[in-house]
């Protein structure tokens, strides 16, 4: 804050602080309302107060809505949580592994068509993911993997943005380092495995956070390829609360908070690396 004041003068600093405050409130208020409603077991009270100022301030603190959501036999929350964790975890693992490998080949390999390949990959970023849903769905039908974990994992593995971020990092690796490894007898894969990949931790964190949220909150694809509760993720399960005209806002908000907690925890775990990645990109880029 002191630095902002020095640069912009006291008035400018106050303005920046006010703007930051307003923006922070804009982000936090809906979350506060979500938590407040989730803690209120009285549905009638929620209906009366929703949208009013007091729906942002917890007056009652009860975990009843949470217990109802977690113990609902029609919607086994723990099963859905397990499904979502499995799908997100495996997609992230395979995505980081294969995309980093692809990027390393493109950045440090000897393929002649590296340039055109990279252009093609970057061009694919311009294609809206939704436009690929139909062909992917038909292919999944042919492969006979509808309503499985595989169908929810495979489409998320190859990711052009991940390849691009890894590529950017790997092209900046010092040539001397790669050369030294070669002289020491490292194979191309060993250079990737023991030198490039460990050095790319900040990129891995950035990709993990960005892709985690994308997979965790995915709705369109899972709703089209899942049927029963066996492979259903949290995002699809939550939509059941909106399929009826009888909506229980306390339970909806408790479900939403319960769904958000793992994402927040994940961010807290990897945030240091993520910020380091963003900072280093900012300084060098």
């Amino acid at each position: 804050m002191a630095k902002i004041s020095q640069r912009t003068g006291r008035g400018g600093g106050s303005l920046a602080l006010a703007c930051a405050g307003v923006m922070t409130l804009g982000v936090l208020l809906p979350l506060l309302m979500m938590v407040t409603i989730s803690l209120n077991p009285d549905e009638q009270d929620i209906m009366v107060s929703i949208g009013a100022l007091r729906s942002f301030i917890p007056e009652v603190v009860s975990l009843q809505n949470y217990f109802e959501v977690w113990a609902d036999p029609a919607h086994p929350f723990l099963r859905y949580l397990g499904n979502t964790l499995l799908i997100t975890g495996l997609t992230l693992l395979f995505s980081i592994l294969f995309n980093s490998m692809a990027a390393f080949v493109l950045a440090q390999g000897t393929l002649r068509i590296r340039g055109p390949l990279m252009i093609l990959i970057l061009a694919s970023l311009a294609i809206p993911a939704e436009s690929l849903v139909l062909p992917q769905l038909i292919m999944a039908g042919w492969a006979g993997i509808i309503d499985t974990y595989q169908v929810q994992i495979l489409p998320g593995v190859a990711n052009a943005m991940s390849i691009f971020l890894f590529y950017q990092f790997f092209t900046r690796l010092p040539k001397e380092l790669i050369e030294a490894a070669r002289i020491d007898g490292f194979s191309f894969f060993q250079i990737f495995r023991y030198i490039a990949l460990p050095l790319s931790k900040p990129v891995v964190s950035a990709i993990a956070i960005l892709q985690f949220l994308e997979i965790w909150n995915a709705y369109l694809w899972p709703v089209m390829v899942t049927r029963g509760p066996e492979h259903r993720p949290l995002s699809v399960a939550m939509s059941a609360y909106f399929s009826s005209n009888l909506q229980s806002w306390g339970n909806i908000m408790a479900f939403a908070v319960s769904m958000a907690i793992p994402a927040i925890l994940f961010f807290l775990v990897v945030q240091k690396q993520f910020i380091a990645s963003v900072t280093s990109t900012g300084v060098k880029g």
């Binding site: 139909l134 769905l137 038909i138 999944a140 039908g141 509808i146 309503d147 709703v223 089209m224 390829v225 899942t226 049927r227």
Partner: peptide
């Protein structure tokens, strides 16, 4: 889900 099942079979 229904639209998807019509297209993918099942």
């Amino acid at each position: 889900a229904i639209q998807a099942a019509v297209m993918s079979g099942g």
